[in-house]
Each structure stands twice: as C-alpha cells, then as structure tokens.
Amino acid sequence: MRILLWHVHGSWTTAFVQGPHTYVVPVTPDRGPDGLGRARTFDWPDSVVEIPSERLREQDVDLVVLQRPHELALVDRWLGRRPPLVYLEHNAPDGDVPRTRHPAADVPGVTLVHVTHFNRLMWDAGPAPTTVVEHGVVDPGRLWTGELPRAAVVVNEPVRRGRTVGADLLPVFARAAPLDVFGMKTEGLADHLGIPADRCRSHELVQRELHTAMARRRLYLHPVRWTSLGLSLLEAMHLGMPVVALATTEATEAVPPGAGVVSNRVDVLTQAVRDFLADPPHARAVGEAARAAALARYGLTRFLDDWERLLKEVAR
C-alpha cells in the first residue's frame, strides 16, 4: 500500500513508518510545515519517500492519513482526487471542551482515529466513524543509569505555552530537585520563571541524543496539565525511568500503580521527586516496572498490528 501523509509529528511518524508499506511525504522547496519531507533528526526507513508537491498527481496513492484540518484542501489541490481517508487526531481539544466539534466530524468518507481514549471521549466526532489506536514507541532500550541526581523534563516552547504544559509549576519542583528541561525554545526558561540557574538548565538536543541524556537523570517529571499523552512520558518509561506526572488527560491510564507516582496533589508529587532523588535503588525498581508497563501497552508490535487492521478495513 502507498500511504500519503505529512511530516507533522516526528516521534509518532517514526513509529508509524516502521510498518510494511511505502510512505509518501510531500516536500516543498522551502521545506515548510506542509512540505518538510523526510525527517532529519529521526531515523526513518527507506520506505519513506519524499515526493515534490507538484508531482503528487503522478503518484499511485492508496490511502491518505490527514493530521491537520487544512490537509484535505491540499489533497484536493495536490493529488486531485480523494483516496480513502483517515484523520489522525494527535491532540486533546482546546476551548469549550465539552462542545468542541472535531474538524473531521462532518467530512464524508473520513475515519477519525484518536491516539488516546481520553481524546475520543472529549472530542465531539458527530457522525464520523471513530476509533482509537493507542501510541506505539520504537524501543530505545533500557538506558537508565540515574547517575545524575536531577529530574528530566521534556517540553517544547514552555514560555509560550505556560500553564498548559505546567511551566508555572517548575519553580515548585525545582525546590525539590534540580531540573534539566529538554525541548525546543527552552532557552532562558530559568530566568523567565525566576529559578536559580543551577536548579533549572535548558537543553535542545536532537532525538538520537535526547534519550541518552534523559536516561542519565534520576527520574522523569511530566508537569503537563493538558495534552493528549506526551510521547516523551512513554519514551521515559521505555528507558526504564521512574516517572512523576500530573493525573490529567491519559496519564492515569499510561502509568499503572508501581510504575511511578501520578497525582494532582503537588505536595505528593514533590515528595515523590525527593524520594526518587534520595533512593536510587527505589528509583531503579520503579523504573523497571515503568519499562515493563510501557512495553506491554505501548510496544511497537501492538501499535503496528492495530494500524494494519485499520488500514486494511479503510482501504477496502
């Protein structure tokens, strides 16, 4: 099968393209948001092929995976026809959540796929056929050493996104443990939040360096209030890291008892951070449970099998 999709979410796409198909990604001269082409910081197989947008009409495409509302117009303009369509929704809804209508709800012939059951519950999908394919992660291996008594946090653009990603909570957590914040546009975060420089450091690393750096930290902290389900949380669990997370969105499903501490009480979370920092053997044991849980629920084989069943059904 030849599947057209846009390079939107690098981590998710890295798992998806491990399947048995040919994956066509549009490329534009400026490699802008609608034409990034192949990833440069993720390892993708040769089955992912870049096709200039002006040549898409020449391609045999069996199915399209949409991920943003405007991509349907790009399909009409660049492809000139509508093969079977899947709309993959990565995000939880914003705004008036109980009444948030999904952009694909009223598009004929689209199958809507959510990455978490929480998202499916919160979006109004109208009459659209809807299902869930939970995340899968390419296993980076058990890399955790925990040698650095610091907490790893992964979040992009924390200054701009603020309370949504829990940036306002970082000063509280920084008093419990020094933080290493990884992600795009994290520079100047400590100054912005008034955290002493030695208690909050910013890092921008490519994906292949990120996992090793995370795994040297004693624990993973997930302060995000409102998100679908941060793949960095699942990656940290795969690495064998103990995790501390807010009990929001899908986190309570992703982190079972014994695999970390999940709560909406900041005092409980900060104490958990202190406990992991002070007791490396405890951190190791919880991290091992986190890895086992992540492999069982978010392993790549299950993910690809679920997608294969869905793609065959939609393409019929």
Rank of each mutant, 00 (worst) to 15 (best):
W6S: 06
W6Q: 01
H9L: 09
G10P: 08
G10S: 13
G10K: 03
W12A: 08
V17E: 03
G19P: 05
H21F: 00
T22E: 15
Y23K: 04
D30R: 15
R31C: 11
D34E: 13
G35V: 01
A39E: 14
W44L: 12
D46Q: 04
P52E: 10
E54H: 13
V61E: 02
V64Q: 02
V65D: 02
R68V: 08
L72D: 10
L72A: 10
A73W: 07
W78G: 02
G80F: 06
R81G: 08
P83E: 05
L88A: 10
L88F: 15
E89M: 09
H90R: 04
N91I: 07
A92C: 12
D94L: 11
V97N: 00
P98Q: 04
R101G: 03
H102A: 11
H102V: 10
H102K: 10
A104D: 14
A105I: 03
G109D: 03
G109I: 07
V110Y: 09
T116V: 06
F118K: 07
F118M: 14
M122V: 12
A125G: 13
A125E: 11
A128N: 05
V133D: 03
L143C: 04
G146A: 00
G146H: 00
P149V: 00
R150Y: 00
A151I: 00
G162F: 08
V165R: 11
G166C: 05
D168Y: 01
L169I: 07
V172F: 10
R175A: 15
A176R: 07
A176G: 06
D180Q: 14
A190V: 03
L193I: 06
G194H: 06
A197T: 09
R199K: 12
H203V: 01
E204A: 10
Q207P: 08
E209D: 15
H211L: 09
H211W: 13
A215V: 00
A215R: 00
R218M: 00
V224T: 15
V224W: 04
R225Q: 12
L231V: 09
A236P: 11
H238N: 06
P242W: 01
P242K: 02
V243C: 05
V243L: 12
V244P: 01
E253S: 13
A254F: 12
V261D: 05
V261M: 07
S263I: 09
T270Y: 01
T270S: 13
A272N: 02
F276N: 03
R284V: 08
R284M: 02
A285S: 15
E288F: 04
A292K: 11
A293Q: 02
L295V: 15
R297D: 08
Y298Q: 01
D306N: 13
L310Q: 01
L310G: 09
V314P: 13
V314K: 11
R316D: 12
R316V: 09
